[in-house]
Design a protein around this nucleic acid. Sequence first.
RNA 1: GCACCGAUGGCGAAGUGGUUAACGCGCUGGUCUGCAAAACCAGUACUCAUGGGUUCAAAUCCCAUUCGGUGCUCCA
Length: 497
Amino acid sequence: MELFNTLGGKVETLEPVGAPELRMYCCGPTVYDYGHIGNFRTFLHVDVLRRFLQQIGIPVKYVMNITDVDDKIIRNAAAAGKPIAEYTEKYEKAFFEDSDALGIEKSEIVAHATSAIPEMVELIEKLAARDIAYKAEDGSWYFRIDRFPEYGKLSRKDFEGIEDGARVDIDEYEKDAARDFALWKACKPGEQSWTTELGCGRPGWHIECSAMAMKFLGDSIDLHCGGEDLMFPHHENEIAQSESATGKPFARHWMHVRFLLVEGRKMSKSEGNFYTLRDLLLKGYRASAIRFLLISVPYRHQMNFTFESLKESTNAIERLRTFHQRMLKGAWPETVAQRPGEIADNLTQQIGEARLKYTEALANDLNTAEARAAIFDMVRVANSSADAGTLTKKDVDAVLEVLNLFDGVFAVLKDNDAEITRAALAWAEAEGRSGEIAPELLTNFAFTDADIDALVAERTQAKKTRNFARADAIRNELMAKGVLIEDSKDGVRWRRK
RNA sequence: GCACCGAUGGCGAAGUGGUUAACGCGCUGGUCUGCAAAACCAGUACUCAUGGGUUCAAAUCCCAUUCGGUGCUCCA
């Protein structure tokens, strides 16, 4: 498949080199708080890529790291009066719960920064042996950027104009050059630290990813991904460290997912447009709709997240699910007596085209919007044919095959939204945040499936005796509780709005 | 300030030189239905921010302008 490579700025073929599986690494979360939807947009697109690679027969070995020690963690853990391990455990658990709710498949390897300290130390020592890393007076270690002439090749920045000392961070120690970045931070009283050959301290953020990527995947990896903001300085620094230490190219392909805007502005707490997955679930939005929305806009485009578009996604998924159920449950004939051959061939051809368009779209730099369009084309054609009574069992099998292909990547057909929302409600109760739950959510979920089934049965009975007044009253009652009823030849179906 | 990206219907969003500008949502009308819902059909951008240029041909390439966003500092 073809994927844009930030390194070089061109669309290039993505393929495994020197190993049967594609080795990929993604910068995971720093577990100091709940993940927000911007975080998840990145992980969702990586998930889409990974699912698609596997679908086209490219095995993947994927490592995601968990940054479980850094400045923010130390600060927040101290504020909470907890050891950092205990503090991060809660948010790491939440991160995986949220990922799961969004249908993100877990990476083959989850790498914790705190469990790879020896590898980081070793890497820094390798750099130190070549005088690329140096120790400052306070015991911190820095990377000497002058020694890596290619610095800036990823983000294509021109550092000529940046003079030493032009921008000095308040908390920085004595570095030889302003741009030099920390590899190892000297210990401070009361902070978590490790006593190593480098002295007492803790790892800098950048060294974690270099050390762990190489530990699990080797010196040269096929693909490295992350959010666009990580391009500089994080990924630039990873390249500098890794390539200086090994003398080999670090990652051949770099993928960066662009930022998410919320209602047209950068998401930030001060703007008041900052949302975690849990915030949205408590407002009554569905996990599947959030997934679908976040992956519907191709990863290289900045996407504008709005509540209106979230509703749109909810409705679009309903259409797909309704269609899926129709295909699964309908009694399709083996053959259609008077079906004109011309129409039959046309339908088969259109299903085939949808399949091709879907695959080509994703293979072309992960164009999720086009892949989505191909599927909706097929949905319309098949529905149309089903209405006309010309759809056969064989057609349906072909349709379902394409639909399964689509769902193998998009993963929105299975409806476990209610379950996820219930878990979020329980979490809100436990955290004392039940005040944030949307009122209609409580009313709707107070209504159990059994309650609904009973009313639906009563309505069906009323309809049989042509008591339409009673039947409609029940339908309205259910509607008020967010339940929609659909009558069809095959019986009654209900679903939550 | 420097750098980068974007501007396509009511909304979201494909399409990067060549038939009637995908697809989804919404809206209007119709078919179906006891009525709905679902589904289908028809309609909903004479046109792709604005101005200029290149070309037989431009939403697509070039220049300028306007507006929006992002990076240059922790950040997915």
